[in-house]
């Protein structure tokens, strides 16, 4: 999850991509945090534009079959709740409810900085700390194409392979797989549930439309 700051894309490409992470601290408030985390999960689940959720403790995401009750049952032995949204209004609604709930658990939102700061101002919240990406350094020749990185960096632990991403992209472009099915397949390896299938589907749709086969159909 330390990688959510490095989600790849331009301002336009990141309009539909926000993640949240509620995290208890092992030094401060992790002891007995299960009920608070369950409260946060129930608030997040109320949002109709919640795209995905999950945890490494549960071992899978909503898109891989994790049910809310199953997730909630893991939270006494966990320290966080994670998920993602495809629109900023869902983030606003989530933060408003979390502010009212006063759980005391730290809340982290990843996404467009200016949009998140604006929402915080509207809700009278004071953003505390930002984690900014200073880019990818070292042997950059090893990196795949931009559109592949847009997909693979949506998993906070790097579990989505560039090879699988390329294979899915080719199948979608050739009309052998729908963007929806492709996004669902690519979400399977990411247990924390911050792989945004809505955004992935949009990326795949655009690729299909811009491909020679897509242009004919």
């Amino acid at each position: 999850m330390s990688h959510a700051l490095h989600r790849h894309g331009t301002v336009e490409q990141l309009q539909n991509d926000y993640t949240f992470y509620a995290r208890a601290s092992r030094y401060v408030n992790r002891e007995g945090c299960g009920p608070k985390l369950r409260k946060i999960l129930s608030i997040a689940l109320e949002e109709k534009n919640l795209v995905n959720y999950g945890s490494s403790q549960a071992g899978k995401s909503f898109k891989a079959g994790l049910k809310p009750d199953e997730y909630a049952a893991t939270l006494d032995k966990a320290y966080g709740v994670a998920g993602c949204f495809s629109d900023k209004e869902a983030v606003r609604s989530l933060l408003k409810k979390l502010k009212e709930a006063e759980t005391g658990i730290s809340i982290v939102i990843s996404g467009l900085i200016d949009e998140i700061v604006k929402i915080a101002r509207d809700l009278d919240l004071k953003p505390h700390t930002a984690f900014l990406s200073l880019g990818v350094h070292g042997k950059r020749s090893l990196l795949p194409e931009d559109e592949v990185q847009q997909v693979t960096t949506m998993c906070g632990h790097g579990m989505v392979s560039s090879k699988l991403t390329k294979v899915v992209m080719e199948r979608v472009k050739a009309g052998k797989m729908t963007p929806e099915k492709g996004a669902h397949l690519l979400a399977q390896p990411c247990p924390c549930g911050i792989f945004n299938t809505d955004r992935c589907e949009a990326i795949l749709k655009e690729l299909k439309e811009n491909s020679p086969a897509g242009a004919k159909s």
Binding site: L95, S106, V108, L112, L125, H128, A130, F131, L132, S133
Partner: peptide, 13 residues
């Protein structure tokens, strides 16, 4: 720098 980041919303107690 990127237009996106990870932001601690200051809601922890």
């Amino acid at each position: 720098t990127r237009p996106n980041a990870k932001i601690n919303m200051g809601m922890g107690r």
